[in-house]
Design a protein around this nucleic acid. Structure first.
Length: 118
DNA sequence: CGATTGACGTACG
DNA sequence: TCGTACGCCAATC
């Protein structure tokens, strides 16, 4: 059984979850940034697709910290209630207006840079 | 098994 | 600057 767990780690989805979980509190990133970090920059859609099951995985993935390239909360409708995503972001010190993150550029967290810089 | 969709992003006009 | 088209890969119909 334990071996099965390792098999799951090899999945592209798990890699996405791992990166999202590494996002610091009060920070956000984009689907493309994660995709690029994983080497699938051209498959940014797959990142969003992976998030489709984010709330099904344990521990739960902070998908609310992931927004599109415009800093827009495109996936807010997947949190059960659209207002939940904005609320979570504001709770972490971020500012959201009209489904858009304020100072998105400053709050942007790029795994390809942050993790590499370490 | 083929066509459509999707929490994106880039390219082109 | 804005709108449209395409690519990418997996899941769903």
């Amino acid at each position: 059984m334990a071996e099965d767990a390792q098999n799951k780690l090899d999945s592209f989805f798990e890699q996405v979850y791992a990166v999202v979980r590494l996002i610091p509190k009060g920070r956000i990133t984009s689907y493309g940034a994660i995709a690029k970090y994983l080497g699938t920059a051209r498959s940014s859609r797959m990142v969003g697709w992976a998030m489709n099951g984010a709330h099904t995985v344990r521990p739960k993935v902070p998908a609310h910290r992931v927004v599109n390239r415009n800093g827009l909360l495109t996936g807010k409708h997947h949190f059960g209630e659209p207002e939940r995503m904005q609320e979570l972001l504001e709770k972490e010190g971020l500012k959201v207006k009209k489904d858009q993150v304020i100072n998105f550029k400053e709050r942007f967290w790029d795994p390809a840079i942050e993790l590499e810089l370490e």
